[in-house]
Design a protein around this nucleic acid. Structure first.
Lengths: 263, 263
DNA sequence: ATGTGTGAACCTTTTCACAGCT
DNA sequence: AGCTGTGAAAAGGTTCACACAT
C-alpha cells in the first residue's frame, strides 16, 4: 500500500500506535463498568486485569494519550473515560447505515452496543423490494435506490456491509461514491476502495479457521504428522488468555454468505 | 482472565507465526475461488492481489509452510489449497456448538461459511425453554441443560458463545468443563479460561470505535493523492490469540494531521 | 510506600532486494 | 526471462525495570 506523504513526525504526541488504538475500546468498556459502580480511581494493575491485558502495556498505551494518571494513586475513572472517548471520537454522533438486512443485518440493527457509544443507526438498506417499509429494530428498511440520498441527507460517513459476498463490492462502491469513508465489512470478500477510505472486516469463517489451527495442534502434543513436509514437533506453546471485551449489550456480528461464489 | 500461560520457547521449525496463521484463511479463500474457475497456477503477485496483501508478505508466509511453489512459474492452485487446508486442520471435521440463539445466534446458524470449511453445527443451545425444539436453520434448538451431554456425545471441542454478556462467563465455564478447548466469543466480555483454552473474540462495538477514531482524524486532513496504487484495502482484523494477543491491524491513512484538538 | 511514566531491551512482523531455480 | 525463497534490514509492538512524583 503506500499512500505516501507524511510519516510520523516523531515530534511526539499525535501519533498513537495502531495497536494502542485497537485497545482503547477495551479500556473504555472496563472503565465504563467501573464508572457505573461509582469507583473513583483505578490502578493500572486493576484496570489491566479488567480489560484483559497486562499493566505494563496499559500504562504504555496511556502514555501515548498523555499523562492522565497520578503517581502513587492511579487513574481517575471519569477523567479517563472522557479522555479516551474524546480520543476515539465518541463524543460526537456518528450516523451509520447498515446495508443488507438479512439475518446478520437484523442482528446488527438490534445490537445494543451501537447507540451506547455514539453510533446511531441512521438507516437500514436492502435490495429486496419486499423488505421496503418493513420495520427492523424499529427502523423501517429502505430500498437500495435510496442509498445515495440517505447517505447525503444524513451526513453518513460510516457504512456497514452485511450483504452477500457477491453484492459487497458494488455496495461498497456506491457507499464510497456517496461519501462514506469508513466501512465495516461482514461479507467474506476483499473490498477495493480508493485511497483515504478505511475498511475493517469481520469474518466468522476466518476466526473459526484460526481456532481450528490451534485446536489441531493441541490434539497432538506428541503426535507426529508426516507428509512430505514432515516433522511436526513441539507444540508451539499455546493458548491465549482471554482478552478483551467492549461494552454493553450483546449481539454482534457476523454470519453471512459463504465464500463460494461461483463466478 | 489472568491465566498466564507459560510461554515456551518453541524452538522448532514448525512454529508458524501467528500473523501468518491469521492470513492463511484469506489465501485459502482466494485459492478456492481460483480453483472453482479452474485456474491451474497463480503467481504470488496475483494471489496476493486477490487476498488483499502484498506479494512479499505472501511469499514469506508460504515459506513457513514449505516450498510449495515453482520458481519462474508460480504456485499450483490445487496443491496449495490442500496444503493450507491441512495446515489449518480443515481436512478434518470440526463439530461446533452455538450457545445463545438470539438474533445473532440465528444468523450464525445460518452462516453458509460454516459447512464449506469443515465446520459442522453439531447443536444450537439456548437457555430459553420456549426455544427448545424450535428449529433454526433446520436444526432444533436444545436447552442449556443438555449442554454437557451434547458436547461429550459429539466430541465438540469448539464452542461459539452468542449469549448476552451477563451469561457468557458462565456458559464459557460450562463449555470448558465439558471439554471445549477453543471458544469464539461474540459477547462483549472478557472471558477467563484456564490454561490451554483458546479464546478469540469478535466485537462489533470495538471495530466501529476503531473506525470512528480514524474517521475523526480525516476531518482536518487534506487527503493527498500521490501514488494511486490500485488501492486494495488489506484489512485483516485479527483478534488476540497468541500469548497475550493484541489485535487489530488496519491500514490507515498515513498522514497524521493536526485535526481538531483543544489541547 | 505506592504506582505512574518511560527509556531501553527484546521479540514479532513487514519490507527489501537479490540469489537461485525453471 | 520470470518468479520463488529467503537472508538481512527496518518497522512495529511488548516487556522490563526503575527513576520519580505523590
Amino acid at each position: 500500500m503506500a499512500t505516501g506523504r507524511t510519516h510520523r513526525p516523531a515530534t511526539r504526541s499525535r501519533g498513537i500506535p495502531e495497536a494502542t488504538v485497537a485497545r482503547l475500546p477495551l479500556y473504555l468498556r472496563a472503565l465504563t463498568a467501573l464508572s457505573e459502580r461509582s469507583v473513583p480511581t483505578v490502578s493500572s494493575e486493576e484496570l489491566a486485569a479488567a480489560a484483559g491485558v497486562n499493566s505494563a502495556k496499559l500504562r504504555k498505551d496511556f502514555s501515548y494519550l498523555g499523562s492522565y494518571g497520578t503517581r502513587g494513586v492511579g487513574y481517575d475513572v471519569e477523567y479517563l473515560v472522557y479522555q479516551i472517548s474524546r480520543e476515539l471520537g465518541l463524543t460526537q454522533d456518528w450516523p451509520v447505515v447498515i446495508v443488507g438486512i438479512g439475518n446478520l443485518g437484523a442482528a446488527l440493527a438490534n445490537y445494543g452496543g451501537f447507540a451506547s457509544r455514539g453510533f446511531r443507526v441512521a438507516a437500514l438498506i436492502d435490495a429486496d423490494p419486499a423488505m421496503a417499509g418493513k420495520p427492523v429494530a424499529g427502523i423501517p428498511v429502505q430500498h437500495t435506490d435510496e442509498l445515495e440520498s440517505i447517505i447525503r441527507e444524513n451526513g453518513v460517513s460510516i457504512g456497514v456491509i452485511a450483504t452477500p459476498a457477491g453484492a459487497a463490492q458494488q455496495v461498497c462502491d456506491r457507499l464510497v461514491a456517496a461519501g462514506v469513508t469508513s466501512i465495516l465489512n461482514f461479507a467474506p470478500t476483499v473490498l477495493s476502495v480508493p485511497d483515504g477510505v478505511d475498511v475493517r472486516k469481520v469474518d466468522l469463517s476466518i476466526e473459526l479457521q484460526i481456532l481450528a489451527f490451534h485446536e489441531q495442534r493441541k490434539a497432538g502434543e506428541g503426535v507426529d504428522h508426516e507428509d512430505q513436509v514432515a516433522a511436526v514437533a513441539p507444540p508451539v506453546s499455546a493458548a491465549p488468555a482471554g482478552p478483551d471485551g467492549p461494552d454493553g449489550r450483546h449481539q454482534g456480528p457476523d454470519g453471512d454468505v459463504p465464500a463460494v461464489m461461483p463466478a
